[in-house]
Simulated scan of single mutants.
Amino acid sequence: MKGLLVFGRSGQVATELSRLAPEARFIGRDAADLSDASCLAGLIASEQPTAIINAAAHTAVDRAESEPELAHAINAEAPFVMARAAAKLSVPFLHISTDYVFDGSGERPWAETDPTGPLGVYGASKLAGERGVAHAGGQWAVLRTSWVFSAHGANFVKTMMRLGAEREELRVVADQHGGPTPAAAIASACLEMVAAMHADPAKGGIYHFAGAPDTSWAGFAREIIDQVGIPCRISEIATSDYPTPARRPGNSRLDCRAITRDFGIERPDWRTGLTKVLTELRK
């Protein structure tokens, strides 16, 4: 899309967006410090974009517990300023969010209308960002996703490959469930949504998008090890056996029917996406 402005440049989704939309303008940390949102409105006004995607975030879930002010600045204050600037230009704004806005209870997939209840600083900061975007006015959309993976940056796939090659056994959490999501599929969904929003000013709101079928981290790890062909055994453990500074939601399943209904975007098969990622990593 001509005139597309993307915040984020080196992250997993931003990297995939740059492949699908090389003509877009990508804003990295060197051009905009998202911890200081005061610079964003002027930057956006000077760029005069036709649409904006925010693919940048403070995603260090555990570290956020010890730096809540920074997480809030990047995940809440910056998106609000972006959305307000987009509203002033009357252009669509799309913000990427997370399953961590929910408390992870139960087993039913979370719908967009379900009550939120983040368990930690990261989820709370992302939820505040969603609310800021919604209150900024204009045409906006929030895309909640989960368990993102790609051939870029640090992620679960690359960690399992590295550790699996070093060890005979990996102990992986089996009581957290969700949908692993290829970053490439998220990038594609973002571009489809923005194009549709540009064509129809009535489109927008909160949507869920995650890979299918739902699985556990142990199930995800087992598929990675099987596809790579590493002789490593995956042993299932409970969340309580792997304590972390930030609590993780046990149920990260997302009901993705709304994005299919409104935009025609189907859930991607993460196993197919994994095959493509592993092929790229081998190269």
Results as ranks from 00 to 15, higher is better:
135 H>F: 04
143 L>I: 03
99 D>N: 02
116 T>V: 15
110 W>G: 06
132 G>I: 01
134 A>T: 01
92 P>T: 04
138 G>R: 03
170 L>I: 14
78 A>I: 08
145 T>I: 05
128 A>D: 12
103 D>Y: 10
139 Q>E: 15
101 V>A: 02
144 R>S: 06
147 W>V: 00
108 R>Q: 11
105 S>E: 15
109 P>S: 05
101 V>G: 00
86 A>Y: 00
95 H>M: 08
123 G>F: 06
137 G>N: 05
112 E>F: 15
160 M>H: 05
68 P>R: 03
91 V>Q: 07
72 H>M: 10
173 V>A: 05
79 P>F: 13
107 E>M: 08
169 E>G: 03
130 E>P: 04
126 K>M: 15
139 Q>K: 08
166 E>L: 15
120 G>T: 01
155 N>F: 14
139 Q>I: 09
83 A>W: 09
69 E>R: 08
116 T>Y: 04
86 A>W: 00
83 A>R: 00
82 M>T: 01
126 K>W: 12
125 S>P: 08
173 V>F: 06
85 A>Y: 02
105 S>L: 13
88 K>L: 15
129 G>T: 10
132 G>C: 13
83 A>E: 01
135 H>E: 14
123 G>H: 03
161 M>I: 13
134 A>H: 01
73 A>I: 05
73 A>P: 04
140 W>N: 13
158 K>F: 13
92 P>H: 03
81 V>H: 03
167 R>T: 14
74 I>M: 02
112 E>I: 13
159 T>R: 12
128 A>N: 05
165 A>Q: 08
146 S>C: 11
101 V>S: 02
88 K>N: 13
141 A>F: 12
131 R>S: 11
95 H>Y: 15
68 P>G: 08
100 Y>R: 12
157 V>I: 04
139 Q>G: 14
148 V>C: 12
88 K>G: 12
129 G>W: 05
91 V>E: 04
113 T>H: 15
87 A>M: 03
146 S>W: 03
96 I>V: 12
96 I>Y: 14
113 T>Y: 09
172 V>A: 05
173 V>L: 01
71 A>P: 02
84 R>F: 06
98 T>Q: 08
139 Q>R: 14
85 A>I: 05
145 T>P: 07
158 K>Q: 12
156 F>I: 10
69 E>K: 07
125 S>N: 01
117 G>P: 10
110 W>V: 03
127 L>S: 12
161 M>P: 01
106 G>F: 05
91 V>H: 14
131 R>C: 09
75 N>H: 13
115 P>V: 13
116 T>A: 11
118 P>G: 15
140 W>T: 07
112 E>P: 15
